[in-house]
Design a protein around this nucleic acid. Structure first.
Ligand SMILES: [Mn+2]
Ligand SMILES: [Mn+2]
Ligand SMILES: [Zn+2]
Ligand SMILES: [Zn+2]
Lengths: 135, 135
DNA sequence: TTTGCAATCAGGAACTATTATCAATTAAGG
DNA sequence: CCTTAATTGATAATAGTTCCTGATTGCAAA
């Protein structure tokens, strides 16, 4: 019924700190590898559990995508992302100061609108240099 | 090397027809149920295989879902979607004629931009009527 | 300090959505 | 027809994530 009291754990602290050090929007497994250097027997399940909890309490952001692994962002300030269609890398979209979507959209076909998800897609600098893979 | 010749199959035909009849952006399993009424021993694998092929050839659109199942859209004309955060339903976002994102974005932090993904989030009419689920 | 207990943990099993494999079937061109 | 390779249904395999177990631990009341 009532939501459980959140207590402090070393594991959660380390996971949050390590995520905040990154600018690469790491996946759960990447974050697990990083945090393991400080907590050698940290389990992947604990990483997932805490990423979920931190996302729910709004301390971090989860960048969902289809297929592959979810990526996480320790920076909760309002910004957008660019994703590479070749390698899956995600970068912050700088140079997009103004929100390109009308914020005043409140209702849409009976829906109460709470927000929107916007992500740019393209080819990252590294993948542009690589020879084009035929299909 | 050379891509295989695409031939006509009854299964693919039915899957495409059934998808085009829907306005609900069904999942692969939902579509499997629908198409099974016409082809009783259609396998789910065949549905997935054809949805992938049809997406690749541009006859349908795949709406990448976070977490859950992917949804598919038989309407390839340029339009956006609203997703219900409670029940996962997806509807077309009518009344958004103009593209709310600057189309002229070509480059972003070294990325060659090919497109963007925009989706609105909110609570659908049905879920608004339902009593608020506590967490 | 000590104690009680729910939150949290590690480890591993289970689950879900999707893709791969493969022998049998079938569309299509000659 | 006949040949060929695309496609199929059935099933196994995979990837990412969540769930379950019993052990541990943070925290507050005694
Ligand atoms: Mn970011
Ligand atoms: Mn649509
Ligand atoms: Zn790349
Ligand atoms: Zn709903």
């Amino acid at each position: 019924m009532s939501k459980p009291i959140q207590r402090h754990s070393r594991q959660r602290q380390v996971i949050l700190e390590e995520l905040r050090m990154q600018t690469t929007h790491p996946t759960a497994t990447e974050l697990h590898q990083l945090a393991k250097q400080r907590l050698p027997n940290l389990s992947l399940g604990t990483v997932y559990r805490n990423l979920e909890l931190l996302t729910r309490t709004g301390l971090i952001r989860r960048l969902d995508t289809r297929g592959g692994e979810a990526r996480y962002d320790g920076d909760c300030t309002h910004h957008f992302h660019v994703r590479c269609l070749r390698c899956g890398r995600v970068n912050d979209a700088h140079g997009l100061s103004a929100a390109p979507v009308k914020e005043q959209v409140q209702t849409l076909d009976g829906y109460r609108i709470l927000g929107y998800r916007l992500e740019f897609e393209g080819i990252c600098p590294t993948c542009q240099k690589r020879p084009t893979r035929q299909r």
